[in-house]
């Protein structure tokens, strides 16, 4: 049996003239959490739809749980759970009925399906709401029920398409905690997200997708290294000093600095460590430039993403500058 829970090789998907996927390859080891990270329209959802057998690929192959998605669709579906972008709970059924229906459609038998439904309601803190129609649920409860529904048949591989979109921060944190327990149980998870924080928080391995292509992959640390180490930054008090500060930072860091005018932030990647900060502080002091903030920070996935796709974002949203 393959050691990979998911294996995608050269997936291609076209919608008319538009190429949603232009040869996407990646694999996810059993028990791992993989984050597909990319902006809207990057092809994340299309990849998930192919892997969950909802649509066919125009090229390439994929296996899930060791089974070819194109030829063994039914067997794949028996082994996966899918939480689509919008929670697709049935609003006119109760939470419990929703879960039982999914269990029955997984052919667990009514008794097992009912027992499993109660177990999941408990696990997702929905026991009290289990008898209420899902249309009375809050957004966070709906998401939890949706996630519970994907787990009814104890799937080997779980697909979560933007699982926290539209949730408030508290509900998002709750959902993250639930996902942690699944990971501890050894479920393989592929999740798509636009939130870098989310990919960093949940995924062992991150696949960055843009315009239907994989543009980078690795764990969060490796991706951060691609940006070129830490960021040396300073925020001059007077916007008029931005250019001079930028020149200093560029000099000390040895890399062209980025300037974000609205927040008065100047930064550049450096491997000079804390010494770079003290050199910058000295230089600023000598020049008599006042700053609100100065320091060295670890790059975030945001920086990675902008380094990799900066061009694209600049094209579509010219007013948005790297911070």
């Amino acid at each position: 049996m393959s050691t990979h829970a998911i294996e995608a090789v050269g997936l291609i998907k076209r919608y008319g003239d538009k190429e949603a996927l232009a040869g996407v390859s990646f694999e996810v080891p059993r028990g791992a959490v993989c984050g597909l990270l990319g902006p809207n329209g990057a092809g994340k959802t299309t990849a998930v739809r192919i892997l969950t057998t909802l649509t066919g690929a125009d090229g390439g192959t994929a296996t899930v749980a060791g089974l070819d998605v194109a030829t063994r669709g039914g067997d794949v579906r028996a082994r996966i759970g899918l939480a689509a972008q919008d929670a697709t709970v049935d609003a006119l059924l109760t939470g419990r009925e929703n879960l039982i229906m999914i269990g029955e459609l997984h052919h667990l038998g009514r008794r097992v399906a009912a027992a499993r439904a109660d177990e999941l309601l408990e696990q997702f803190d929905l026991s009290d709401a289990g008898g209420r129609l899902a249309k009375t649920y809050s957004g966070g409860m709906r998401r939890r029920l949706d996630l519970a529904a994907t787990l009814v048949a104890r799937p080997e591989v779980l697909f979560l398409d933007e699982p926290t979109t539209g949730l408030d921060p508290r509900a998002r944190n709750e959902l993250w905690d639930v996902l942690d327990t699944l990971v501890a149980d050894g479920t393989t998870i592929l999740l798509t997200t636009q939130y870098l924080e989310e990919a960093d928080r949940l995924a062992d391995d991150i696949v960055v997708v843009d315009h239907g292509r994989v543009i980078a992959r690795g764990d969060a640390r490796a991706l951060k290294r691609q940006v070129g180490g830490s960021q040396l930054f300073a925020t001059p008090t007077d916007p008029g000093d931005l250019e001079r500060v930028a020149a200093m930072i560029g000099d000390i860091a040895g890399a062209p600095p980025g300037i974000d005018v609205p927040s008065r932030l100047v930064q550049a990647p450096t491997d000079g460590g804390p010494l770079a900060v003290s050199r910058l502080a000295d230089a600023l002091g000598d020049a008599g430039i006042a700053v609100d903030d100065i320091g060295l920070r670890q790059p975030t996935l945001d920086d990675v993403f902008l380094t990799l796709t900066g061009e694209h974002i600049a094209e579509e949203q010219p007013q948005e500058v790297a911070r």
């Binding site: 067997d75 006119l92 029955e104 459609l105 997984h106 499993r116």
Partner: peptide, 28 residues
């Protein structure tokens, strides 16, 4: 924990699945 039969042993039927979807429609 509820024991869930493994995916290999689960068998469904057109009639059974149809009835589950139909029952849902009637609930609606």
């Amino acid at each position: 924990t509820v024991h869930v039969p493994s995916a290999d042993t689960r068998r469904g039927s057109l009639l059974g699945d149809t009835w589950v979807v139909a029952r849902r429609g009637i609930q609606h």
